[in-house]
Amino acid sequence: MKIVILDGGVLNPGDVDWAPIKALGDVTIYESTNSDQLAERSKGADVLLTNKTPLRKEDLPAIEGVRMVGILATGYNIIDTEALAQRGIPVCNVVAYGVSDVAQHAMAMLLELCRHTSLHTESVKNGDWLKSKQWCYWKLPPVCLEGLTMGLIGFGSIGRRMGELAHAFGMSVLANCRVPKDPPTYSPFAFATLEHIICSSDVISLHCPLTKETKHIINAKALSNMRKGAILLNTSRGPLVDEAAAAAALKSGQLSGLGTDVLSEEPPTADNPLLSAPNTLITPHIAWATTRARQNIIDLTAENIRRWQSGTPVNVVNGVSNA
């Protein structure tokens, strides 16, 4: 079996092990692949693995002979899954490889927005403490999370872990999801409507998938209905947020802070309104990128290939079950 990895450079710059996939066949790994290189590099491949290299309908002639496509990630919006389904090619993604990793990243941004640790570290290094007339000082007053309400939009594995972390900090937790079930044992917790979460939360954290229904789920109307001074977190998908509306809310003070690991366009262009918005933390889509999580992606992808080869495919996102 020939396996081609189109863009292994981001997932593995050399600190994790491809061995679980290499054990399954003849493996060729490319740092990155552009559309002009796709046909040559895919030639003879049974399995094609991609992280960010798009596979659109117009690319299908270039991957003639491929029998399975694996995504080295959870999101599959770069893949035309329907077009591949019409060719009988299953598309398998990787799920739950970095649940705690992503939730901890969201919580790290929340703590930074509330405690302003970087701001005060730089202030001390610049000599402000030495010059202060008081024994201690603050540029912005810190915020305690205990007693505040965390609203979770999306309550899958990452949303649930985020709820556990919020509870550990003494927060009440509200959650919205398509099918409310299996409520956690901690309290206070409640499932709630989207409208109730928007109106009643001090912190809103996004953990839902990007669909036609959820695009711009955080828009000007939603932002205007939030508690004044609320904090918004997004470690899911950039287009969930209307970035121009969020930037306006940050400038007006309706939002007191935004922490996001994702943007509508990645990397952002210079005119992205969030780049100049106050009290905004932006990280380069790295919530998933711990060494542990990236090794999990490789291990789980290998298991996807094994299961597909045995005729019992798992994590198929386009409904094709044939091996």
Rank of each mutant, 00 (worst) to 15 (best):
N34H: 09
S35W: 13
R41V: 00
R41L: 05
R41A: 00
S42G: 14
A45G: 13
A45C: 13
A45T: 03
D46E: 15
D46F: 10
D46H: 14
V47H: 01
V47R: 02
L48P: 06
L48S: 03
L49W: 04
L49N: 07
K52I: 12
K52A: 03
P54S: 09
L55I: 14
K57M: 06
D59W: 04
L60T: 00
P61Y: 01
A62I: 00
V66N: 02
V66T: 02
R67T: 01
V69G: 04
V69T: 03
L72K: 01
A73N: 01
T74P: 08
G75W: 05
Y76T: 11
Y76H: 13
N77E: 12
N77D: 13
N77F: 09
N77K: 10
N77R: 09
N77A: 08
N77V: 07
I79Y: 00
I79C: 05
D80C: 04
D80S: 02
T81P: 10
A83E: 04
A85G: 13
Q86K: 15
G88S: 08
G88V: 12
V91H: 08
C92G: 12
N93W: 07
V94Y: 02
A96Y: 10
A96M: 14
A96Q: 15
A96N: 15
Y97Q: 04
Y97G: 01
V99F: 10
V99H: 08
S100R: 10
S100M: 08
S100D: 11
D101E: 14
V102E: 05
